[in-house]
Design a protein around this nucleic acid. Structure first.
Lengths: 157, 157
DNA sequence: GACAAGTAGATGACACGTCAACCATGGCCC
DNA sequence: GGGCCATGGTTGACGTGTCATCTACTTGTC
């Protein structure tokens, strides 16, 4: 007992508890919806939509990893699983012999197009539509504050 | 294109993005701290602290699962791993032949006592202390609203 | 007390994520 | 152009989480 730790106050405790439970339950629910609606996991959807958003539905792998804040290893593993299911394909990179490119397959694109609106609805139903405009903005502010402290791409002073 | 989905507005998009990234980065950071400080994963810590909080540092397994909002399967798997490491032990339940009880070992209790203040500091550093009191309360309100819609133990009207 | 239905918990198979190790190429420097 | 390190990407091992299934016990009913 050399340094008294600053425990959490009741209000802080409440916020912390809210954080824990919200993510636990919300993630679970969104994953459930996504799986039932489209047969995708959340990571699947993230990959598909990140690819779908870019030009020509393809992207350099490390670029994609950086954009998604995923480790290269994680992405590599996940792409392997998705490639096996025919959602994406790997291609060679002309300009860098080490590099590789992932592209949506037709099937991947179709799946994404079908999944997207349902997923948006799910996000609305379980999260966005529960909050009033002020809460939306407040949440964005809070999240960005936390992220800016942690993100490799922001100054963390 | 039978039903036009209600896409997210920019502000909603911002909140949603904040949610995703906050969760991703904050969890990763807390897990990293916890692992380095105490050799525990977040789930490890959750189990230890839930046990430590109760009387006699022991608890009925299903009771613990309900409290933590974990599936019984998940808890069972995790307890197996923790038992192997000597942090907890399973005991028989006197009043219910099916049941089982988990208890902290001495080692588990010691580990928890050492981990707790460091973990609290980590939570403060990366989350709580970044927010002003209004944000704390706002966040708690948002989280509870979302949770109350999803929690099995709340009415979801 | 026997039998059906439910509950507590464990288990196996599989998807996911991390870490460390690895291989290949690229870029640099002399 | 040979040596060296950095980078892009993959792989293997392992811890974690989910679902479905299974066993054992309890409870209720007759």
């Amino acid at each position: 007992m050399t340094e008294e730790p600053r425990w959490l106050t009741d209000r802080e405790q409440r916020a912390w508890q809210a954080y824990r439970r919200m993510f636990l339950l919300l993630n679970a629910q969104l994953a459930r919806d996504l799986g039932q609606d489209s047969g995708l996991s959340e990571p699947d959807y993230d990959v598909l939509s990140s690819l779908g958003a870019g030009p020509r539905h393809r992207r350099r792998i490390s670029d994609l990893a950086d954009h998604m804040l995923w480790s290269r290893s994680r992405l590599s593993h996940h792409l392997a699983r998705m490639e096996k299911r025919g959602l994406v394909v790997r291609e060679e990179c002309d300009t860098d012999g080490r590099g590789a490119i992932v592209a949506l397959t037709e099937d991947g694109l179709l799946t994404l197009d079908q999944a997207a609106p349902l997923h948006v609805e799910s996000v609305r139903r379980h999260f966005i539509d529960l909050l009033d405009p002020e809460q939306i903005d407040a949440f964005a502010g809070i999240g960005e504050r936390v992220v800016n402290r942690l993100a490799p791409t922001g100054d963390d002073g």
